[in-house]
């Protein structure tokens, strides 16, 4: 059996939109809200605790 790990990134040939992916947890009922809460905890919380000032990555300019 092929080893497809749960962390394999989505292989779309177009931009599926991060917000559109996250919304699918929200509209999925109670179980989805738990996933959404975990998602917020892992993505938004670290940014909030870091404060609003993020170091600027000069390489992108």
């Amino acid at each position: 059996m092929e080893n497809i790990t749960v962390l394999t990134p989505l292989l779309a040939y177009f931009d599926p939109g991060s917000g559109s992916l996250v919304l699918q947890a929200v509209v999925g009922g109670a179980a989805g809200l738990v996933v959404f809460a975990k998602y917020l905890w892992t993505t938004a919380a670290p940014r909030l605790f870091r404060g609003t000032k993020e170091p600027r990555d000069m390489d992108q300019f």
Binding site: L7, L21, K38, T42
Partner: peptide
Amino acid sequence: SSRALSSSGFSKGL
């Protein structure tokens, strides 16, 4: 989001 959702327990049922 794809990776974060996956590690947050996103399932086919959703």
